[in-house]
């Protein structure tokens, strides 16, 4: 056994392993959040949706009989827990942003441990790349699973449970497809940028959250216009078809028109919104590296 304990001179510094070690509590919390929400979504998809659907079937069978027992509690249970699951999934982009801004980068830059890492044998650029890539993989895996299960839980109720959410419900739309993944990645990049800009934990945490909220808000404004709407017009009041998302309506008694997205636009809207959000994420990521380069000069890359 010689004094040199390292295996081979060409071995690469193992940054990812140590990143996971340093943020082990966050990793545990993330795993727990994903597993619990996933379990809840599986329950919603299976037994809870079935029970609520059965209650709705009995309710419809009851007709006008007010004394008829149809099991309202199953309906309410499905509705409540569905909302909790949606909320948990919808909060992920914000949780990611707060963590990335505060714990992942703000704290390291504030306490100087970033400099400690930069004076080991790998470059600041690689340091940042690992700090963005590893969480991005975990966030993608976790939110991907949640979005898929949420979509299943929602479709399990669609058409069977009268109180199930519409496809264009803000919570449901944003947690039942790749949009959730893209929003979470945008939150990660926004938090990281805030951390690099502030180099302090609390301001970075707060502005990471704020930036993510702004992205979310602008995205909500743009969402209906990301795919061409259908339109109807005519004399008197014209309604959009049942189950479609009314984007605009107006006019006068002579001519009334309405624009809407039918359910068929669900995936086109999901995919274009995802593409837009991923572009924003890419820009924020480039911003992160630009700021890092400004911090460390030309030294960043070599």
């Amino acid at each position: 056994m010689t004094a040199l304990s390292a295996p081979a001179p060409a071995a690469r510094p193992r940054l990812t392993g140590w990143l996971l070690r340093l943020h082990r509590p966050a990793l545990y919390v993330w795993t727990a959040l994903v597993l619990l929400t996933a379990a809840l979504l599986l329950l919603l998809h299976g037994p809870m949706a079935d029970a609520a659907a059965e209650s709705w079937r009995r309710y419809d069978a009851c007709g006008f009989d007010t004394t008829c027992a149809y099991g309202q509690s199953a309906i309410l249970r499905y509705k409540d827990w569905y909302n909790y699951a949606t909320l948990a999934a919808a909060l992920v982009p914000f949780l990611t942003a707060a963590w990335a801004g505060g714990a992942l980068l703000g704290k390291e830059l504030e306490s100087g441990t970033a400099r400690l890492s930069w004076t080991q044998s790998s470059t600041p650029v690689r340091w940042l790349a690992v700090r963005l890539a590893a969480p991005a993989v975990l966030v993608t895996a976790g939110t991907g699973l949640l979005a898929w299960l949420h979509y299943l839980a929602w479709t399990a109720g669609r058409g069977r449970i009268d109180s199930a959410k519409d496809w264009y419900d803000i919570g449901t739309f944003h947690t039942s497809g790749p949009v959730l993944v893209a929003l979470s990645l945008a939150g990660l990049a926004a938090g990281a940028l805030a951390g690099l800009l502030w180099r302090r934990t609390l301001p970075a945490l707060a502005s990471g959250l704020l930036l993510t909220a702004v992205i979310w808000g602008v995205h909500l404004e743009l969402l209906p216009h990301l795919w061409p709407t259908l339109g109807r017009s005519g004399h008197g009041y014209v309604a959009s078809p049942s189950g479609s998302w009314t984007v605009s309506h107006g006019g006068n008694a002579a001519r009334y028109h309405v624009t809407y997205h039918p359910y068929a636009h669900y995936w086109p809207l999901q995919l274009t919104a995802t593409a837009v959000l991923l572009t924003v994420t890419a820009l924020l990521t480039v911003g992160c590296f630009v700021v890092l380069r400004r911090l460390t000069g030309k030294a960043a890359t070599r």
């Binding site: 690469r12 940054l15 140590w18 400690l116």
Partner: peptide, 29 residues
Amino acid sequence: AQDKPLYPQLTVAETLRMGADLNPGHWDA
């Protein structure tokens, strides 16, 4: 650095192990 930044959550042994992992090829444990 002046304020001796280290990761507070690591043990002394872990900190040195991190040094070994981040400086492969020229670490004198």
